[in-house]
Amino acid sequence: MALAPALSGTATEARRRARARRGVVGSRAFPYLLILPMLALEGALVIYPIIRGALFSLETDTGLGLDNYRTMLADPDFWRMIGHTLVFTLSVDVAILTIGLSLALLMNWSFRGRGLVRSLLTIPWAIPEVPVAITFVLMLDPSFGVFNAFLRLFPGVTENPQWLLDPVLAMVVVIAVTVWKGFPFYSLVLLSALQSVPDELYEAGRIDGAGRFALFCHITLPGIRDTLALLAVLAFIYSTQQFTLIWLITGGGPVDATTTLAPAIYMQAFRFYNFPYAGAIAVVGFVISAVATLVFVAAQRRVETSE
């Protein structure tokens, strides 16, 4: 390693010479030129529409104003939608992390076929949302859906439930499908986090006479805490973004029982053609995901510094 300082010395030298040659590539503007095309596209097709949508939300019959927000906040449907969004998002988040972690713990030992199980777990996540919706609608069909056959195995169940016509069952269904599609990914990330917890810690704990539960609470959990926090934010974002599964399975219904944020915006804009009101709800969606992103960045910093 005696060579290293000399090497980096010549490298700085070379860099200085390269810069001295001037030209665009050597100039200070070079990094900015590299990101410019991407910045332009994001500006035009993501950031500009967000601003445009926010401006829509200020448009009223009498000029600019906060009327749409007043209407929104006074609208019981809006608060029902927020309630549905909370129920959906929190249930998906908690279920994804609990099931994901349980499966990761189960898989955290070397067994034959682990590669195969990993690959199989990728499948739900890889299947596009439209076929997923089609499959679950088929399996839940009240007259010949296979889920009814399973349900009939329980004592006392003699009729096929109307899965998608009952407000509570419909919510359970969209939550379950979203979890089914999402949790394998979280499981695989948690599995690699579990594997990065040093073996020596477990050894030391065992020598100190710690039981299995104590090992989990004092070594495993602190070891993956930051990853878990990061994934909680990611799952939150995943569930607030969810549109296609809900839209194709229940259409937000029955009535509005499964209308969360994304379907609500879509419905206001394209069913009722109320763009200003859709814009107001979209601003709520924007604020939620902006805050979630900041929390994500904070969680990410912790994961990086703890490594």
Binding site: R52, I265, A282
Partner: peptide, 18 residues
């Protein structure tokens, strides 16, 4: 990161207008 996390539904109406 902001643009990655942004739900498509938030921009879909203004994008259609554009």
């Amino acid at each position: 990161l902001f643009t990655q996390m942004m739900p498509g539904a938030v921009v879909v109406a203004p994008v259609l207008m554009l």
